[in-house]
Amino acid sequence: MTDSLVSPLATPEERDAEASVRPKRLSEFVAQERVREQLEVLLHSALRRGSPPDHILFSGSPGLGKTTLAMIVAAELGGALRMTSGPAIERSGDLAAVLTSLQQGDVLFIDEIHRIAKPAEELLYSAMEDFRVDVMVGKGPGATAIPLDVEPFTLVGATTRAGLLTGPMRDRFGFVGHLEFYTAPELAALLERSARILGVAATKEGIGEIAGRSRGTPRIANRLLRRVRDYAELRTDGVVNVSSARAALKVYDVDDLGLDRLDKAVLRSLVELFGGGPVGLSTLAVAVGEQPDTVEEVVEPFLVREGLLARTPRGRVATAAAWRHLGKKPPNGSFGAGATTAPDLFTVDGQPDT
């Protein structure tokens, strides 16, 4: 993500703080009650049998706890955790080296598993089903497949784009858990726990103010808490209350709905440059100076969920709520205000831009 509040380029202090507030056990994990209960049954029944549980897939938007749950799975099973990501596995040999180094009962976590290379994915099939991999030696007609045994392990995959997983890959997971966005009360409970761990003095009202602007995402909530703490320590009495939270979040360009700089840039471009749309994704991305993937995967899910943006067959459209949020009067017939049709699609070089 590009915004400073959610940047992956965190300092060592930031990473340490984020690690310190991660739940270590299922009993400490806030919200996601259904997934948590299902996971508890799966893991504890496997422990009673003395065998690895079925492979696990977590899906959901970034920051909802997929990596944290992978760590919890390893902790509950008492096994070591090996972590990698789909984009990092470019060749089947890379994956074979990881698989053959696993010990019995280990947990292999592959983040963004939908981006794994096709040859590696096919190698993973036999490892998941039969705990065996076939390593090809040589090339051409003389190539030979050497079967290698893999110690029984549990694969935990995480994806933000479950629809991009192939059918054969999805079918090999015995448990699929979809993580939902958190409610404001759930985020408040999570922030109260984080404040205790970090030693932050905070009022319930201050915690509630942060929770309401955290986009339903624990990762963002914890980072906003740290930013408000910094502001409170530097410019007020050090207590995170309503006034310090509002002042700090104003400094960091987080508005009442939780929209940040990039969110508002997308809405302003739609409204002020394109008259509310519809406009194609690539054109919109150019207008705000971001990659299309960033706009589609980072910005749009929240704007759609808040009813500020609509995805139509002809492009992105700002709703009447978006116009009002920007302090502008929606035009007659604007999307979301009783309109039955959307304006013509903006084009690039005379071609539809979707």
Score class of each variant (00 low, 15 high):
T354R: 15
V107P: 03
I197E: 05
R82E: 07
G315F: 08
Y125G: 10
V137L: 13
T144Q: 13
N332G: 13
R215N: 09
G206W: 00
L309H: 06
K118I: 11
L179T: 10
H114D: 14
V98F: 10
S61Q: 08
S7H: 07
Q351N: 10
S92E: 15
G289T: 08
A287I: 13
D149H: 09
A342E: 13
E272W: 00
P87A: 02
A287T: 13
V266T: 14
T67D: 06
A320R: 02
H178S: 15
M136K: 14
S126G: 14
A143Q: 11
D253L: 08
K328R: 15
V251S: 02
P147R: 09
R193E: 00
G350N: 00
P352V: 08
E90M: 13
V295Q: 11
L259Q: 02
V242G: 03
L148C: 12
R193L: 01
L309D: 00
V6T: 14
Y252F: 15
V271D: 01
L179S: 14
T354I: 15
P330Q: 01
A143Y: 11
R115K: 10
R25V: 01
L165I: 05
A339G: 11
L77D: 12
G138I: 06
V286G: 10
L9A: 14
V156Q: 07
L69V: 09
T354Y: 12
K118H: 10
L77W: 03
T203M: 12
V271H: 05
F346L: 14
L257S: 12
T11N: 02
G93H: 11
S51C: 10
L190E: 04
V35T: 11
T183P: 14
L249Y: 03
F346S: 11
L124G: 02
F302R: 14
T217Y: 05
L95Q: 08
L77S: 07
V279K: 03
L155Q: 10
E112V: 14
H114F: 08
T67V: 07
V348R: 13
I210G: 10
R115Y: 04
R314V: 12
F175N: 10
E300T: 13
A221C: 09
F131G: 01
V242K: 11
A287M: 07
R49I: 07
G277F: 01
E186K: 04
D293K: 13
E300V: 15
V200L: 04
A88V: 09
S269L: 12
T217H: 02
R91V: 03
F181N: 13
K24F: 05
F109D: 03
P278N: 08
L224E: 09
L57H: 06
L326D: 07
V240Y: 03
E28H: 06
L43W: 03
A74W: 00
L191K: 06
A10V: 10
G105M: 01
V228I: 02
T154E: 04
F274K: 01
E33V: 08
L164Y: 05
D149I: 05
R25C: 01
E272R: 11
R115S: 12
G327H: 00
P87S: 04
F335N: 06
H325P: 10
G86M: 00
S269P: 06
